[in-house]
Simulated scan of single mutants.
Amino acid sequence: MNQVLAIAAGGALGSVLRFWLSTWVHTLAGRGFPYGTLTVNVLGCLAMGFLLVLFVDRFSDNTVLRAGVLIGVLGGFTTFSSFSIETFNLIEQGAVFKAVLNMAGSLVLCVGATWIGVILGRQV
C-alpha cells in the first residue's frame, strides 16, 4: 500500500512539474511546434535512465521511493499521450513535416537521453 501512495503522490507532483515546464518552454519558444512536450519527454527520459541505474544498482532496498519516483513522478512528468495528440493535430493541420519531425525527434532524443542518463548513473 505504501508503494501505491508513493506512486499517487509522485504522479501528482510529476504532472504539476510537467505543466509548469511545458508552459514555460511554450512561452519561450511559442506554440508552433510542441517544444514543451518534447522538452519534458527528453528530460524525463534522461532522468529515468539516470535514476533507474541509481535505484537498481545503489538503492535497491527502497522499493517505495523507487516506485514513487520512477513510476509516479516520471510517469506523471513524461507525456506520451500529449505527444500523440499534438502529433495528430499537426497531421490534421497539414503540417506533416512538423509531425514527422516531432516523432523522429522524440524517438531519437528520448532514447538518446535515456542512454545518457544510464551512462551518467553508472558513473556515480
Rank of each mutant, 00 (worst) to 15 (best):
N62T: 10
N62F: 14
L52Q: 12
I71R: 05
L38H: 02
F83G: 08
S81I: 04
G72L: 05
Y35P: 01
L38R: 02
S84P: 04
T27I: 01
L28S: 07
T79Y: 05
F50A: 15
L51K: 11
T79E: 02
P34Q: 12
L46D: 10
G49V: 12
D57K: 11
T37Y: 14
T39A: 13
F33R: 01
T39K: 02
T63W: 11
T79G: 02
S82P: 03
G76F: 11
S82V: 07
G30Q: 00
F77S: 03
R58E: 14
F33H: 02
T37A: 09
T63L: 14
S84W: 09
A67F: 06
T39C: 08
L46Y: 11
G30T: 00
L28R: 15
V42P: 03
G44E: 06
F50I: 03
G72S: 02
C45A: 15
C45Y: 10
T37R: 06
G68P: 02
N41H: 09
R66L: 07
G72M: 04
T37V: 14
G72D: 07
G49S: 10
V53D: 02
G36H: 08
G68F: 04
G44F: 10
V42T: 10
S81C: 07
S81V: 04
P34Y: 12
T63F: 11
